[in-house]
Design a protein around this nucleic acid. Structure first.
Length: 695
DNA sequence: GAGCACTGC
């Protein structure tokens, strides 16, 4: 059982973690101090407030408010700044308004980027409410499939991926006077690429004597040295924040079995704490979560009298939306909610009423192996920042308690920060986008955290195979095909598949398949109903592989007009299906803009398989005499994933869309092809491969 | 022979 380790830090921000001296450092304190207001420029505070009293009172009560004047005074004169403040400080909703009200950045649009769509939408809604304007006028948002902004929009919330896409058509980001990169500590690929793009735009605009671009990086963590250094020693502004104290307990001994330890902790808390206090448990994945949920429910049935009842709720991304929503509903009186979640509850979903966090210290995450060039999905230790993020989920409304199922000594050995995603993923898309922006010397692009040269080289090789690259004067540039590929919001290989499809007269079919592959799985697989699922799926299964199976499902779905009951009966995730339809429409639009012919091969499935063979030839595997498979590219042993339509078959030659390294190296989404099609697709490539095997 | 962290364009 976890035991108190005598470490109740009231705040995770300890003095002394700040940046080294030499830079402007402002301590903005919340609370009763009115220090900031004296310096407030006259312009910033209108004589008669346009806000109704309640909204105004609420805005004034935010921790950021007393610092308003100081903030504006500082930001007015800075090109770049880093603003540190916890969630709840009001920085994201207030800062853009302060800038606008203070007349900063009025010559253009103030952009605020977010890693997630829902955040961009809800923030824009909040801020436009506060400004008493119609959403899409003064305040708007732009996310994929949804643009609620206009000529009048001056404060625009967008996903970081969306701003990146805008940078392809205008790398100087001319419409923006100020770009606020929010949630920078999350270090998503998109934010990381934006850092470089925005920095370059800022410099270039200065050189060209155009409207200056103000860049503000907002982060929740104190580890800002990197941000500040990267933006030419930008000033760091600290926003002190109200935070509820969180008591942290460690186990006395390292735990062999974190699942068992989690169960013990949950029931220990359950027997001691008032039933109104909910528990959030962090585990690593769907299967584990479902298993632990079941055990919890079983144990809860046999508790002694007087013990409160327990409502156990699993939470992970592939759970149907309706079931996800249940975590927000209050439990009946006298009943405790126990939410068992993946890291989705670390950032994406915030649940109120959590008093206890049980942190196993484990997470399932992608790792990149530059030697093999493979992405591996593996259960591993969280980083310290991640552990603090999890603990913080206990103190959203009141003081909280976090049980860490590892010792303090173990914690000290955790990595300080999570490795930024850009160093853990395939860089082909990133490289293609940078090249589309005509970034000079892409291989030495100014990333905040540089990926290894091997890693970059692997992306170059992949784009090269797809025919996207050419070299001019020792510079990498895009071929006409490469430029077209960059227009699609897809992995480069899928963009290439679409571009090849007219040659095989199957553009309509390929659009469907690529759309289905680019959303989360439309196949819903509840582990407890495996047999039922298999029986229902049988009627769609194609012996030619998963792509054709998916096409069959989509066609049936469409012919029934997108029937939700049909989806439920057939274990099809209707949300993802609708999303795929939306993606398809978007991709089709892009094709039409390129004047691609919209052709269908109708019943001729072979053309589809030929098209896939021609675009995915570098992801192929051959059956060996011993019944196993080996990839043609790196002669790696691989297996057919159990979820595949081909799991029980042994075709001689397949292409796959994804390699997944778990207990084995699995191929996912397979299509049966003929070996000669592959040779036809890339004769030079296969000659090289053959030579390599002979040597 | 038996399994799928999380975002996003």
């Amino acid at each position: 059982m976890p035991e108190e380790a005598g470490f109740p830090p009231a705040k995770r921000f300890r003095p002394g973690c700040g940046p080294p001296g030499g830079r402007v450092l402002m301590l903005l304190t919340a609370g009763s101090g009115s220090g900031g207001r004296r310096q407030q420029p006259a312009l910033a505070q209108p004589a008669a407030s346009p806000y109704p009293e309640a909204v105004e009172r609420q805005r004034r009560s935010l921790p950021i408010f007393p610092a308003r004047g100081q903030l504006l005074a500082q930001l007015r004169n800075l090109d770049s700044a880093v603003l540190i403040g916890e969630t709840g400080s009001g920085k994201t909703t207030q800062l853009p308004q302060y800038l606008y009200e203070g007349g900063i950045g009025r010559q253009g649009v103030i952009a605020v980027t977010q890693p997630r769509r829902v955040a961009a939408i809800s923030l824009a809604t909040r801020v436009s409410d506060e400004k008493r304007t119609e959403l899409g006028k003064l305040v708007g948002y732009t996310v994929r499939f949804d643009d609620v902004s206009s000529e009048d929009t001056r404060i625009k919330f967008l996903t970081d991926g969306m701003l990146l896409r805008e940078a392809i058509s205008d790398s100087l980001l001319r419409k923006y006077s100020c770009i606020i990169l929010d949630e920078a500590h999350e270090r998503t690929v998109h934010t990381d690429v934006l850092f470089g793009v925005v920095k370059a735009a800022q410099r270039r605009r200065k050189e060209l004597r155009k409207l200056p671009l103000k860049v503000i990086v907002m982060s929740a963590t104190m580890d800002v040295d990197l941000f500040s250094q990267y933006f030419n020693g930008a000033s760091v502004l600290y926003l002190e924040c109200r935070q509820h104290p969180i008591q942290v307990f460690y186990t006395k001994q390292p735990q062999q079995d974190y699942l068992h330890a989690a169960l013990v902790s949950v029931f220990q808390i359950h027997q001691e704490a008032p039933s109104s206090q909910d528990i959030l448990v962090f585990l690593t994945g769907q299967e584990e979560i479902e298993a632990v949920s079941k055990t919890c429910r079983d144990i809860a049935k046999h508790l002694p009298d007087g013990c409160p009842s327990m409502l156990v709720l699993p939470l992970y991304a592939s759970l149907p939306y309706a079931q996800q929503l249940r975590v927000f509903q209050g439990a009946p009186k006298g009943c405790r909610k126990v939410i068992i979640a993946t890291n989705i509850a670390e950032t994406s979903i915030t649940i109120t009423g959590i008093k206890y966090v049980v942190d196993t210290g484990m997470v399932k995450a992608k790792k990149y192996n530059p030697d093999s060039g493979l992405e591996v999905l593996a259960v591993q230790r969280v980083s310290k920042t991640q552990a603090w993020q999890r603990a913080g989920r206990a103190g959203r409304e009141d003081s909280g308690i976090c049980y860490r199922l590892y010792t303090e000594n173990e914690f000290e050995k955790f990595e300080k920060m999570t490795v930024p995603e850009i160093q853990r993923c395939n860089l082909a898309s990133v490289l293609l986008q940078l090249l589309a922006m005509k970034v000079p010397n892409v291989l030495t692009f100014d990333f905040m955290s540089k990926p290894s040269p091997d890693h970059m080289q692997a992306a170059v090789a992949q784009l090269d195979l797809l025919g996207a690259l050419e070299r001019k004067d020792n510079q990498l540039t895009l071929t006409p095909i490469g430029r077209k590929m960059a227009a699609f919001p897809l992995e480069p290989k899928f963009a290439k598949t679409i571009l090849l499809s007219p040659k095989f007269h199957c553009t309509e079919e390929i659009l469907t398949i690529v759309s289905l592959l680019s959303v989360d799985s439309v196949l819903y697989n509840p582990p407890s109903r495996r047999d039922e699922v298999q029986a229902m799926r049988k009627k769609f299964l194609s012996s030619e592989g998963d792509h054709i199976t998916l096409l069959n499902i989509y066609r049936t779905f469409k012919s029934l007009g997108g029937d939700k009951d049909w989806c439920r009966e057939n274990f099809v995730n209707s949300r993802n299906m609708m999303l795929a339809a939306e993606v398809r429409a978007q991709l089709r639009d892009i094709c039409l803009k390129m004047s691609m012919p919209m052709v269908s091969c109708r019943g001729d499935v072979e053309s589809i398989r030929r098209c896939l063979a021609h675009s995915l030839f570098m992801s192929a595997a051959e059956l060996q005499p011993d019944g196993t498979y080996t990839t043609t590219d790196s002669r790696q042993p691989v297996a057919i994933h159990p979820s595949s339509a081909l799991f029980h078959c042994r075709p001689a030659c397949v292409v796959y869309t994804e390699l997944l390294h778990t207990s084995k190296c699995y191929m996912r989404d397979l299509c049966v092809v003929a070996a000669e099609w592959l040779y036809e697709a890339a004769p030079d490539y296969f000659r090289r491969k053959l030579r390599a095997t002979r040597d």
